[in-house]
Amino acid sequence: MSGMVLDPGDRSLPTGFAPGVPAGRVVAPKDAATVMLVRDGSAGLEVFLQKRVKGMAFAAGMTVFPGGGVDPRDADVSVSWHGPEPDWWAQRFGCTPETARALVCAAVRETFEESGVLLAGPDAATLVGDTGHYAAARAALVARDLSLAEFLAGEDLVLRADLLRPWSNWVTPEGEPRRYDTRFFLAAMPTGQQADGSTSEAVEAYWATPRQALADFADGRCHLLPPTRVTLEELAEHSGAGTALEAERTLAKIIPKLVQRDGRWHVLLPGEPGFEEAK
Rank of each mutant, 00 (worst) to 15 (best):
T231G: 11
E176S: 08
Q193H: 05
A161G: 03
P226V: 05
L232C: 06
F185V: 05
A213E: 08
E237L: 09
L232S: 02
R183D: 01
R211K: 12
A236M: 03
T182Y: 01
T182V: 03
Y180N: 10
R221A: 10
E204T: 07
A187L: 01
E233H: 10
N169Q: 07
E233A: 15
E234K: 14
P166L: 08
T191F: 09
D181C: 01
A218G: 04
A208C: 13
T228R: 07
F184W: 10
E201S: 05
T191V: 13
T172D: 15
E237K: 14
A218D: 15
L163P: 00
P226M: 03
S239E: 15
L164D: 06
T191S: 13
A215T: 12
F185P: 06
W167Q: 13
E174R: 01
P210V: 05
A188C: 07
E204Q: 12
T231V: 09
D216R: 13
G192Q: 06
V203K: 11
P210W: 11
W170V: 01
E176Q: 07
D196N: 13
R160E: 15
A187W: 00
T209Q: 08
P227N: 04
A218W: 11
R183M: 09
G240C: 15
D162W: 10
A213I: 09
D181P: 04
L163D: 01
R183S: 03
E204P: 00
S200T: 06
T209G: 04
D162Y: 10
A187K: 07
V230H: 02
L164R: 05
L164C: 12
L164Q: 05
P210R: 06
R165E: 08
T228M: 13
G220C: 10
G192K: 10
A218L: 14
F184Y: 15
P210E: 14
Y180E: 02
M189R: 11
E233I: 09
P226R: 02
A208P: 02
E237T: 10
P177H: 10
A208Q: 08
D219H: 08
E233C: 13
L164W: 06
E234V: 08
W167M: 15
T172Y: 00
T191M: 13
S239N: 11
F184M: 09
D181Y: 11
D181K: 06
P166W: 05
R229C: 12
T228W: 10
G175D: 02
Y206K: 00
V171E: 12
E174M: 00
